[in-house]
Design a binder for these strands. Structure first.
Lengths: 196, 196, 196, 196
DNA sequence: TATGAATGAGTCTTCATTCAT
DNA sequence: TATGAATGAAGACTCATTCAT
């Protein structure tokens, strides 16, 4: 039990710092202070270890987003909550956040593609429903998902990247507040443009 | 001459698709249809090849940004121009854009760190001067560079990522227009918040 | 007790199918449905397990041959009995037969070399005495043990190999009859050649 | 060129002495005095190296048998020629002979299965035609291929095994003569039994 | 007796780079 | 300039065996 967690933690850091190809099984062993055999007793391969971390991280952020979305009573609340909950998760799990933000999804992940797809599907569906609901009232823009997502997600992710690299002065709390408001304004404005 | 360019092109694609550690010299050789000896005749190492591409790409985006900034007569024009020129560059050089967007800067890059630093310095200085100039008039927010950059750059980069993966329906032209406007509004609003 | 036998049985099959180096302790564990600890409780090493099987199998064939030889009243009966008893044993213990027929005797077997040597010695002595006895009467060839053995043993072993692979149509019983006769004729003819 | 042959030779000996799983790539490297890289420059894997040797050896023996068979003017000549040509090949290529005689055909060989199958097909067809031809005259036994092969091949192979291990006193030439005659007699006798 | 976690030496293979032609 | 053979350090993974419970 403990060993498994130690290995996962070590791997998370290594993958984040050095990338998938860049981290050596030896790196992970060293950081986790585990023998080769022990590592392979708990995980069948470097790939599998990576996949487990990747899925876990994705699962977490998505759960966070979904929870935020479901609680929201209005579209404004929803937008602000998405931004805020994401940045709170970054604060809580900086390593996983950094991991997801830097990691390219490798081809071999196709093995767990199913679960990934299912997870993405759930998020997308919920998001789509939620958007639809507010598009009908004219509060959110019509059929511009790409721009909508860029405005909703882009600034938070960019800020998170800077924060994780220690290149920020503003706190995450404050950023959440201000970026949430900015997102809401941007989406409202976009909605206006999309009117007939 | 031609050989050199072919190799650079092949390497750019490989690095983008497979990452630095993920691409082997053999991959590059195969794509460029070049023999080992020939490749090493033109470039001294895989690292050097990577560094050259990295510097070139950075140089290009930065030049693009600087030009946009220098031409701008007002802060609004400046903001819109930054967004638009970036997306135009992405359109012109999708491979280099994808390369920069996905590539982690490796440690060994420290060898060319000097040049990189110089380039960054120039951009940062110009940007800072430009911001200062407009901060004084109250048009741009005070001392919140992190949020400012997130709002200025985040959406465009996020959109570029989606576009490069073929996940967009909106054209880059239109996106430039709308994201430029959104950025300008966001920054103006941020400036209000920063007032006393 | 039962456990021990299960392990031996599983190991026999594994060694036969995969060879000594080719079978892993994990293979044996899986086939015998036994845990690592349990397996090592019963046997001290993979080598020992192999040696036990090897010795058992050799002991069995040799006992079979010796019995056949001792019962024979004439040289013809002896030759036919050797062939028949060998093929009967193959029928009774196909796995052990296959094991011996495919297995290369590893160097580490030198540890049990003594017992092996003793066993071989007994067989050789008995065989030599028996041959001598019939060489004196001119029924068996003189001083051509190599050819004699080839004619006596070669066809039966070749047929056994084919039978074990399921590549035969003739039954073992019939084969015993016909190959026994063939061996006897061949040896008699060889004896003629060896006459002055 | 030279390098390639050296590696093949070294591998042949290693595989024969230690078995497929038993020989280490390091063993081969050491014997051939070649670096890892060089070995893998010429062969893509240990498997491939093995397969090449296996196919080569099979090709050789089969070619030998086919030539012998085609030249034969009578069934007696054919039988004697098969035995003699096989033993001559053993004399000429003791290493390859030993290799084939001890080597189990691994599962992974399925990759070259096609060529193997084609080769076996040719031999089998030619042999079948040849047998048929002489079965019609009553010189060879009817529909007892398994026994026929055992009597034809068994003694020669057994003798070859002994000769290769240095356990013989009779020369291969003499053995060929006597085993050829024995085979011919055995087959003729078998034919009698098969008569109506 | 049984279990399964832990160990680390050893195996196959990859890959950047050098060198002779 | 071009070619491809040669090199060897380093990487992922396997496996027999030991040990704590």
């Amino acid at each position: 039990m403990a060993r498994r967690e130690e290995i996962l933690g070590a791997a998370l850091q290594c993958f984040h710092e050095l990338g998938y190809e860049g981290t050596t099984v030896a790196d992970i062993k060293a950081r986790a202070k585990v023998s080769t055999g022990s590592l392979y007793h708990h995980f069948t391969s470097k790939e599998q270890l990576f996949a487990e971390l990747y899925l876990d991280s994705i699962r977490e952020t998505q759960a966070t987003s979904l929870r935020a979305l479901r609680r929201a009573k209005s579209s404004e609340q929803g937008v602000r909550a998405l931004v805020a909950s994401y940045l709170r998760w970054v604060h809580r799990e900086p390593e996983k956040a950094a991991f997801l933000l830097t990691m390219r999804r490798a081809e071999f992940m196709e093995e767990v593609e199913e679960e990934l797809e299912a997870m993405n599907q759930e998020l997308r569906t919920t998001l789509a429903e939620w958007i639809d609901q507010h598009v009908r009232t004219g509060e959110l823009p019509l059929a511009r998902t790409d721009l909508l997502m860029a405005l909703l997600v882009g600034p938070s992710e960019d800020f998170a990247r800077r924060w994780l690299r220690g290149r920020t002065t503003t706190s995450l709390r404050e950023a959440a507040e201000l970026l949430g408001e900015a997102a809401w304004n941007a989406l409202r404005a976009l909605a206006k443009h999309s009117e007939p």
